[in-house]
């Protein structure tokens, strides 16, 4: 199977007839899919289908950041989504997925954490982002991070009542303080070829991958390398070019 994939890739085509740097279709982002959450989105890339839900809570700020709110990203690879996933405590894969999405948002400066402060040293907003694949057919990284950004854009703050408690039944019109829109694109290496958006079948034979978060101006804001193969500097810069170009395509969907 791997030889077959590589042979095809050398000719510039994929198992499903796509080009190497082509996303699957349908490629869609739906915001507000689950309006009971403070923010939500659903991303479909081919048969990959990922839900992202956001809840807002207030909490005591971390002692080293008394004037800043915070985010927390969780990912659950539920056995519903693939025969490869099992019940039980979070797998390493799900933890990596959550942390890669977290890094893409946190490190880009997309969110102004200072504006999430309610009372310094006492009360700040905590934004929890939960990623749940419904059907996992490859490239969860890009689908999840795109969904997280879309869901963040969808967030409306709940009302805080006179006693300082959150009234989850009522939302305000106020959205999150989002300054930038980081977009993650993962570039995969199979054999000597570089491609994006692998299906579940292709993903099994990936030698290396590099997730790259980029901003509108082409700045890189986060990396995560995976897979067992090493990459050269040249390969990495090529991957960045792909991530910027493909990021533009994804950006249009938001």
């Amino acid at each position: 199977m791997k030889n077959h994939i590589i042979k095809l890739l050398n000719q510039g085509i994929r198992l499903d007839g796509r080009k190497l740097e082509e996303f699957r279709q349908p490629l869609t982002v739906e915001k507000g899919s689950f309006p009971q959450a403070e923010g939500s989105a659903r991303v479909k890339i081919g048969n990959t289908d990922v839900i992202v839900g956001i809840k807002l809570e207030t909490m005591v700020p971390y002692p080293d950041q008394p004037g800043q709110g915070s985010i927390m990203v969780g990912a659950e690879l539920l056995p519903m989504a693939s025969p490869d996933f099992e019940s039980g405590p979070p797998s390493t894969d799900s933890i990596e997925l959550a942390r890669v999405v977290d890094r893409g948002i946190r490190e880009s400066g997309a969110l102004d954490f200072k504006k999430l402060c309610i009372t310094e040293g006492e009360k700040v907003w905590m934004i929890t982002i939960d990623i749940v694949p419904v059907n996992a057919d490859g490239n969860l990284f890009d689908a999840a991070s795109l969904g997280a950004i879309a869901a963040l854009q969808d967030v409306k703050f709940p009302v805080i009542d006179d006693n300082g408690k959150i009234d989850y039944k009522h939302k305000t019109n106020k959205g999150l303080p989002l300054n930038k829109v980081p977009i993650e694109v993962t570039v995969y290496k199979i054999g000597k070829d570089f491609l994006i958006d692998p299906s579940r079948d292709e993903e099994k034979f990936v030698d290396a991958r590099l997730t790259i978060a980029t901003l509108e101006d082409g700045t890189v804001s986060a990396f995560q390398k995976g897979g067992n193969d090493a990459l050269t500097q040249e390969e990495i810069f090529n991957a960045i070019d792909i991530a910027v170009a493909k990021g533009k395509e994804l950006r249009k969907l938001l």
């Binding site: 689950f34 009971q36 959450a37 939500s40 839900i51 839900g53 956001i54 809840k55 809570e57 969780g74 659950e76 539920l78 929890t128 939960d130 749940v132 989850y168 039944k169």
Partner: peptide, 11 residues
Amino acid sequence: NMMPFASSGER
């Protein structure tokens, strides 16, 4: 299983 954001109220 309920997804963490499924219910109205806290996560």
